[in-house]
Amino acid sequence: MAVKEKEIVVSERKMETIEYVGLTLLFLSLIILFVKPSLIGGIFDAMLGRVVPIVVKVYLTGTLGSAIILSVMTGRILERLGFTDALVRVFTPLAKIFRITPLVIVPAIYNILGDINASGRITAPSLKKAEATKDEQKIAIATMCQGNQSFSTFMLGLLAFTKGGIWAFPIIVVGLFLPVILVPFILSKTIYRNVKYKDISEMPRFTPNTPAVPTIFNGAREGAELLFLLLIPAAAVVFALIGALDFVGVWKPIESAISAFLSALSIDPKTGLQSVLVSPTLAMNTLVETIKNVPPRFAIGSFIIAASGFPLQIPLAQIPAVWAQNSDLSAGEAMQASIVGMIIRIISAFALAWILAPFVA
């Protein structure tokens, strides 16, 4: 008896949208290689030209890389000495009024004391351990962006105000410490409302039992891992993109637009641009030299924008990378929260520059 063979029908796979994108890129690449092959090499060279000075001169041979390692180590020492648990106790009465977990303020305090990246690495796991909601973790990120991430930024700002005859005390209190209290309250009532108050009795202890020597050396090693595995790649991505945009002639207009925008917001365009694109510490160092030629209103705005989560690679790359690894948030959610925090900071810089200038100059 003959057995009839089954017919095998092979159906063609349906083209996905991303495959059309890939084919378009392939054809464009072939056209560029035929018409102007130097364009591809030029873009890569421009990306390299932007990335190398930042990675090598700032992170590797400059002070920033060492500062990050030391800040993580210092943060771990503070955590081991009960600093996190002490902060939770201090802010519990305030958190009870706001009906929010007191831990949302902790990353901002670590940030002011050390570094925004170390702050996320140390305090994000604590929020996760305390079972903070995603909204509360987002509030923590946005609040963290309200303070200076470098003690040198703070000290140089004070020096600039002294040289310019500007009374620094109200600026420090209203510009640095008040937002740490107000931002969690405002966000918990508006954008991120899925919050719940937790008393100390409902939260675990955050002080580890690690011996002294391993705390120090493990903290330094963790700082090095953060630097080489997360922060340098994140910075490379942002500056490579800037290099590519600069090569095709798009970046200069963007840079000019940012400068004009800062000037309209009562922020000194020169130092403001340095804060946004390069380094807040460099911006405050420049302000020390130029303060006598800068109106007090613009000097105040420049200091407040420097005491924030800038430059751009931090909210767009470093915060998402660090918090996605250490919290319940995805990289996109962490970036969204950091952008919210930066928008609040820009608005507060504009408002406080106008409000404080008549009282401090």
Rank of each mutant, 00 (worst) to 15 (best):
F27A: 13
F27Q: 09
F27C: 12
L28C: 10
L28R: 04
L28K: 01
L28Q: 03
L28G: 01
S29W: 03
S29C: 06
S29P: 04
S29Q: 07
S29N: 05
L30P: 00
L30K: 07
L30M: 15
L30C: 10
L30A: 15
L30Q: 08
I31D: 11
I31H: 03
I32E: 03
I32D: 00
I32M: 06
L33D: 14
L33C: 10
L33T: 05
F34I: 15
F34A: 15
F34M: 06
F34Q: 09
F34D: 14
F34S: 13
V35F: 09
V35P: 01
V35L: 13
K36M: 11
K36Y: 10
P37H: 09
P37D: 14
P37W: 04
S38M: 06
S38L: 06
S38G: 03
S38A: 14
L39V: 12
L39N: 04
L39E: 07
L39Y: 12
L39R: 05
I40Q: 14
I40W: 08
I40D: 08
G41M: 12
G41A: 15
G41C: 05
G41N: 14
G41I: 14
G41L: 13
G42L: 07
G42P: 05
G42H: 10
I43W: 10
I43K: 06
I43V: 15
I43Q: 08
I43R: 04
I43C: 12
I43L: 13
F44A: 07
F44K: 01
F44H: 03
F44M: 06
A46C: 08
A46R: 05
A46D: 07
A46E: 02
A46Q: 02
A46K: 06
A46F: 00
A46L: 04
A46H: 03
M47G: 04
L48D: 08
L48E: 12
L48N: 09
G49C: 05
G49V: 08
G49M: 01
R50S: 09
R50D: 01
V51R: 00
V51Q: 06
V52G: 00
V52R: 01
V52A: 08
V52P: 01
P53C: 02
P53L: 03
P53R: 01
I54C: 14
I54E: 07
I54H: 06
V55T: 15
V55C: 11
V55F: 12
V55Q: 12
V55S: 13
V55G: 10
V56M: 04
V56I: 11
V56D: 11
K57G: 05
K57P: 01
K57Y: 12
K57F: 14
K57D: 11
V58F: 07
V58E: 03
V58M: 03
V58L: 15
V58A: 07
Y59G: 02
Y59R: 03
